[in-house]
Amino acid sequence: MKAIGLTNYGGPEVLRPIELPLPEVGPGEVRIRVRAAAVNPVDTIIRAGHFAGKDGAIPVAVVPGMDVAGTIDAIGPDQPAGFDLEVGDPVIGFIVPDGTHGGYSQQIVLPSESLTRKPPTLTFPEAASFLSNALTAEIALEALNLKPGATLAVTGATGAVGGYLVELASQRGLVVIASASAAEKDLVQGFGASIVLDRDADFAAGVRVATEGVGVDALADPAILTDQVIDAVTDGGQIAFFLPTDVEPGRGISVFRSYVMQSSRRHDVIERLARLAGDGKISLRVAGRYPAVDAAESHRRLEEGSLRGRSILEF
Rank of each mutant, 00 (worst) to 15 (best):
K2A: 00
A3H: 04
I4D: 04
G10Y: 03
R16G: 02
I18T: 05
E19H: 04
L20I: 07
V25P: 04
G26I: 01
V30R: 07
R47W: 07
G49N: 09
G53F: 02
G53N: 11
K54D: 10
D55V: 04
A57K: 14
P59C: 00
V60L: 11
P64A: 09
V68T: 11
V68C: 02
V68Y: 03
D73Q: 06
I75F: 00
I92E: 13
P97F: 02
G99K: 12
T100Q: 15
G102E: 07
S105W: 10
Q107D: 13
L110G: 01
L110H: 04
P111R: 10
E113M: 10
S114E: 01
T116L: 02
P119M: 04
P120G: 09
F124M: 10
A127P: 07
A128F: 08
A128I: 00
L131R: 11
T136P: 00
E138M: 01
I139C: 00
A140R: 00
E142Q: 14
G162F: 13
G163S: 13
L165H: 11
Q171N: 05
Q171S: 14
S179W: 06
D186R: 09
Q189L: 05
D200G: 14
A204R: 07
A205Y: 14
G206W: 05
V207D: 02
R208H: 05
R208I: 04
V216E: 06
D217I: 09
L219R: 03
A220E: 11
A223S: 09
L225E: 14
Q228G: 02
I230L: 14
V233G: 01
D235F: 14
I239C: 02
F242V: 06
P244M: 00
V247P: 11
V247T: 15
E248F: 11
I253E: 08
S254M: 10
R266A: 06
D268V: 11
E297R: 13
L302Y: 00
G305I: 07
S306W: 10
R310K: 15
I312K: 05
